[in-house]
Computed example of a mutant assay.
Amino acid sequence: MPSWFQEHPAFSIISHTIVVATATWLVSSFVIDENKVNLYKAKAESAESRAEQFNAKISILESDLANLKSENDRYLTWLTSDPKTVPAMEKRIKELEGSLASAALNKVSEHHEGSDQPLVKPKYYEFSKSFMKGETFVDPKTNAVIGISNISIDNTARGTLYIPGSETIELQNVGPGATWKFDKNGVKYQMTVEGVNWLNNTLKASVTEVDKE
């Protein structure tokens, strides 16, 4: 007795074709999806490897920069200790200029109105210095201090600030151009963040004497 499949050969062929095509599609889709997963995984691993190399390079550069700065500071200390060297003479010249500025300021304050003697405009005090993250900037005249604990990729810094007559200030997202005014012994000064560099973890700050308002 013939079977149902024998009596309907066309349907059997079509059904078989559909089953084979479906199985082929499923296998192909699985292989393609697995290849995609492997590709994405390989890309992610490659990106992670590059990031690790980038971080390692930054760490090495920071270490080299710190070592160079340490050596430079040591050599500068040696040079300034010898009064015959150029750095020592430059330091002495700045000290003398500061003394002359103070003397000129005192002379101007003593000058009475109506005098026909010309007024001498004093040279205002100014001190600036570059420093690294983790270090502090200390103004030798006013003792104003900036300490930086972190520098962000957008060239902003986080740390603390102390200026005479004020409590310690917590700094958040401070960028170049940030200023704070303060008084010390009747003289007005301005603390300024002149530069922030995330790439080499350095900053520059200054304290300058300003006119009384």
Rank of each mutant, 00 (worst) to 15 (best):
P2Y: 07
S3K: 02
F5H: 12
P9F: 00
A10H: 13
I14A: 14
I14H: 10
I14D: 11
S15L: 08
T17K: 10
I18F: 06
I18K: 13
V20Q: 12
A21Y: 08
A21E: 11
T22P: 08
A23Y: 12
F30I: 10
V31D: 00
V31S: 00
E34R: 14
N35W: 13
N38K: 15
Y40L: 15
A42H: 11
A44I: 05
E48A: 11
Q53L: 14
F54D: 15
F54P: 01
N55T: 14
N55A: 14
A56H: 07
L61I: 09
L61M: 09
L61F: 06
S63K: 15
S63P: 00
S63N: 12
S63G: 03
A66K: 15
N67W: 08
K69C: 05
K69P: 00
S70I: 03
E71R: 11
E71W: 14
N72A: 04
D73G: 01
L76P: 06
L79T: 07
K84M: 14
K84S: 14
P87Y: 04
P87G: 03
A88V: 03
A88R: 04
A88Q: 06
E90C: 10
K94T: 14
K94N: 13
E97T: 14
G98K: 02
L100A: 15
A101T: 01
S102W: 09
S102T: 14
S102H: 09
A103R: 02
N106L: 13
V108Y: 08
E110H: 09
H112A: 13
E113N: 05
E113A: 12
G114D: 05
P118V: 13
V120D: 05
V120F: 06
K121N: 06
P122E: 02
Y124A: 14
S128K: 08
S130L: 03
F131M: 02
M132Q: 13
T136P: 00
D139T: 07
P140F: 05
K141A: 02
I153T: 14
D154T: 09
T156Q: 02
A157V: 02
L161C: 06
Y162G: 01
G165C: 03
S166C: 06
I169L: 08
I169H: 11
Q172G: 02
Q172T: 10
A178R: 07
T179N: 05
K181G: 00
F182S: 01
D183N: 15
D183T: 11
G186C: 05
Y189N: 03
Q190R: 13
Q190T: 04
M191Q: 06
M191A: 11
V193T: 06
V193L: 07
G195E: 10
G195M: 09
V196Q: 00
L199S: 07
N200E: 06
T202K: 04
A205C: 07
A205Y: 00
K212Y: 09
E213T: 01
